[in-house]
């Protein structure tokens, strides 16, 4: 009991510290660092929403770039082609992400395990194909440039704080979600689908809802990304983006909320700094994939958990 209380207190302190850092640090660093922190937040939202499926419910999606990309393209098309406002673009992006996610979920949920991986992968390929070839809509290879933020969040630091508020909101929502009854059901499904079915749960519906939530928030990340980069191209939707999102979750620790954020932060920082040290950045990132899979399947949060258990054992003994 006391241990649990302590752990909760520790968690609160950690969250407060991170939040304080996120709020204060941009005031003391250069603009580039703020840009990088902003990237961490956006990819963090994508990783969080992927983790909802992967870590909590045990559905490994190999195509989250599709939902991210749908949000991104919908935003870009609305903003650059139709001159829509920030708010209008947001609504359309979320609706587009919802529709695409729903269709993909209907198809993908017919399969499980490795076939689920394969199908999500294939669906993402389809969305990429559209982004790449539906020229009149997406600009094809050219992508869509010239997406401007509204004037009041024009400068880097304001947009960073905007993203931070959104990310904090997403984090809060997710932590309420995973600690609710619904969240317990998710974990139940991960542990044993057949048992949940036997207990009378509509497993398919639960999975569908989780898929939808995950897709919607990925779309939200895409929306934020477009206004961040003011440009969108098929490379944002490609296979590598899906893989990177998976790597972020695996690196940080699937099945935790802090993990995806930690993973995305580390990944973004490495991605932006490796080439300052070496020309061989491909090898470095490749090795991270290999090392994480082989030696840290539970990610960094897994290590921390292990450490804590060890410490507790030492205390008790």
């Amino acid at each position: 009991m006391r241990g649990e209380l302590l752990a909760t207190r520790g968690r609160v302190i950690a969250i407060a510290a991170v939040l304080a850092f996120a709020i204060v640090s941009p005031l003391f660093v250069d603009e580039f660092s703020v840009l990088v922190l902003n990237q961490c937040l956006i990819w963090g939202i994508l990783a969080l929403s992927l983790d909802l499926m992967l870590g909590y419910t045990g559905m490994a999606s190999l195509g989250h770039a599709a939902y991210f990309g749908t949000g991104a393209y919908a935003t870009a098309i609305m903003s650059a082609t139709y001159g829509a406002s920030f708010g209008e673009a947001f609504v359309v992006a979320i609706i587009a992400a919802a529709v695409v996610t729903a269709i993909c979920a209907l198809v993908a949920l017919r399969a499980s395990d490795v076939y689920f991986l394969m199908i999500t992968f294939a669906l993402a390929m389809l969305i990429w194909g559209l982004a790449y070839r539906w020229d009149s809509m997406t600009g094809g290879e050219n992508g869509i440039a010239g997406i401007d933020r509204p004037l009041f969040m024009e400068d880097t630091i304001t947009y960073y704080y905007f993203t931070l508020i959104v990310a904090a909101g997403v984090f809060l929502f997710f932590s309420v979600l995973v600690h609710s009854c619904f969240g317990k059901t998710m974990v139940g499904i991960r542990e044993s689908e057949s048992r949940m079915r036997a207990l009378g749960y509509n497993v398919w519906l639960h999975k569908f809802i989780i898929y939808m939530i995950s897709g919607l928030f990925s779309g939200l990340a895409g929306f934020l990304w477009v206004y961040y980069n003011s440009y969108v191209a098929p490379t944002d939707v490609e296979l590598v983006t899906s893989f990177n999102a998976l790597l972020m979750v695996s690196l940080g620790g699937p099945g935790t909320l802090a993990g995806p954020l930690l993973g995305s932060t580390i990944f973004v920082i490495l991605d932006n700094s490796v080439n300052m040290f070496t020309e061989r950045s491909l090898t470095v990132v490749g090795c991270i994939y290999i090392v994480v899979v082989l030696f840290a399947p539970e990610g960094i949060m897994g290590f921390i958990k292990q450490l804590r258990t060890k410490a507790q054992e030492a205390n008790n003994g």
Binding site: T283, G286, Y289, V292, V293
Partner: peptide, 12 residues
């Protein structure tokens, strides 16, 4: 994921 790691290493 590990096969993706090898893609990057081999490309390099």
């Amino acid at each position: 994921l590990i096969t993706m790691g090898f893609v990057l290493v081999l490309q390099d």
